[in-house]
């Protein structure tokens, strides 16, 4: 065994330098030229940073488009899903409560119109997106609170909607933070 120990030690050192020092430094160096310089792309409103472009935020105020329920309370220092199994009775009760609460805040919306994504928790707890439908179903509530035309809000969602990749791959979606920033600018 002895004749393998010395080479092992020396190979380990070499590859620590290669994989744990030089490689990350190289990537960090190249990433300086990316948006956000490798520290994450930030979003500013009137010179004030209000968040990261890719990271979802909690929106529970009636005047904003709500984002999805989160098992991490949208704390990006502790991402997490709920890990609730599909048959768990406590979980189904929680979903029922979210449905009830949604109905109270959104008069005029029927139960069968509520999209599942608005009452189920995302995988990361930081989901930045909604489907356009899940945004539009909230338009009436926002229109009343903000004293705006419902059609204006719907067309805002359409404007903010991101098409599938190259037009034919993946879902259509809308970024909730960007949508709410645009919503604030309407007035």
């Amino acid at each position: 065994m002895k004749k393998y120990v010395w080479p092992s030690l020396k190979f380990t050192l070499v590859f620590i330098v290669l994989c744990s020092v030089l490689y990350p430094l190289l990537i960090a160096g190249i990433a300086k030229f990316s948006k956000g310089g490798g520290g994450g792309e930030k979003v500013e409103v009137n010179g004030k940073i209000v968040g990261y472009a890719n990271i979802g935020q909690k929106f529970t105020d009636d005047k904003y488009f709500w984002s999805r329920p989160s098992a991490a309370d949208y704390n990006a220092a502790g991402s997490a899903g709920s890990n609730k199994g599909p048959s768990n009775p406590d979980y189904l009760k929680l979903v029922q409560e979210r449905i009830d609460s949604f109905l109270v805040h959104n008069p005029g919306v029927k139960k069968e119109q509520i999209p599942a994504e608005l009452v189920t928790a995302s995988a990361s707890g930081l989901d930045p997106d909604l489907s356009p439908y899940a945004a539009k179903i909230q338009a009436k509530r926002i229109a009343v609170v903000r004293n705006l035309d419902e059609a204006t809000i719907i067309s805002l969602v359409d404007k903010q909607t991101e098409k599938p990749l190259l037009g034919f791959m993946g879902p259509t979606k809308v970024n909730v933070l960007k949508l709410n920033i645009a919503l604030d600018k309407l007035k």
């Binding site: 999805r68 899903g81 709920s82 890990n83 609730k84 599909p86 979980y91 189904l92 979903v95 029922q96 449905i99 139960k111 069968e112 119109q113 509520i114 999209p115 599942a116 994504e117 009452v119 189920t120 928790a121 995302s122 995988a123 990361s124 989901d127 930045p128 997106d129 909604l130 489907s131 439908y133 993946g170 879902p171 979606k173």
Partner: peptide, 16 residues
Amino acid sequence: LGIMQATGAMEGKEVR
């Protein structure tokens, strides 16, 4: 529960 599942099973999934 009587709601809409147009985007499938969404618990523990990301919209994107």
